[in-house]
Amino acid sequence: MTFYLPIAETAVNIFVYIGMGAAVGFLSGMFGVGGGFLITPLLMLTGIPSAVAVGTGSAQVVASSVSGTIAQYRRNNVDFKMGYVLLAGGVVGSLIGVELVVLLRRAGQFDLFVSLSYVVFLGSIGLLMLFESIAAIRKVRRGTASKRDRGHHNWIHSLPWKVRFTRSKLYMSVYPPLAIGAFVGLLSAVMGVGGGFVMVPAMIYLLKMPTGVVIGTSLFQIGCVTAITTVLQATSNYNVDVVLALLLMVGAVAGAEFGASAGQHLRGEQLRFLLAALVLLVSARIGWDLIATPPDLYSMTFGRGR
């Protein structure tokens, strides 16, 4: 059954995109991630123009992070104060990001930049997570429970403008979360992702927040930032396809259900290992396109580019 998408301006088979939403929803339900890093490249692979893929991907992330935030809020896992600070940074970052998209597109290097961002960020985060999860699995096998040291303070904790984040049990400067928020906001606008795969490790390893609060707080921030990004994309680039977003979201809601129950059968470190493998796979796939000889050396773009 084909459907003509009003913004992407092409006819697509709706079951492909409901299925894609379901598959990504399954994984995001299982791993507790937004799934933007899967949706946006998948949309591009299936022939959706890259600009529309980025804009629509961010709309889809809004849906999955709202439902994730509600689930985490029920467990009191959201540090709203930290969330607002991250959000303030995120707004600035996404404003810069949308401008950066315009500049890069003009220079003809947007697709390259997006691909490189995916390879670098997904690749490095994936590797970190892979090693960490393998170490954790080994520890569990040996029977020693893992304990994270929270006593050590690094240079980040010596910055000024300190604030008490009660829920996270932290007393620290607002500058690091502001910077992390801004960086993730930038990625969100450029890559069409929520940025959870960057923010979660940053919050755990740099801010030393408790892991439980990290997931809920990052989902809260991601939901807000992608909501702003979606509106910005809609007003400045006209690249949000509401019909395509709806197809993906309906699939994702259904898929997340099954993913969450599948995830309950696995242990935390096993989930992280699988997520790392998935992240590396996506990174490798995009990286391969950068180094393999492209089928078309030439590309054409219509419209006023400069």
Partner: peptide, 24 residues
Amino acid sequence: AHRQSLLYGIFTVVLAAAIGVLGS
């Protein structure tokens, strides 16, 4: 999407949030 892009963007976000709430 083209004439009232701000409203359209907000509408899309509200729709996404509603589906998210439905999901949870």
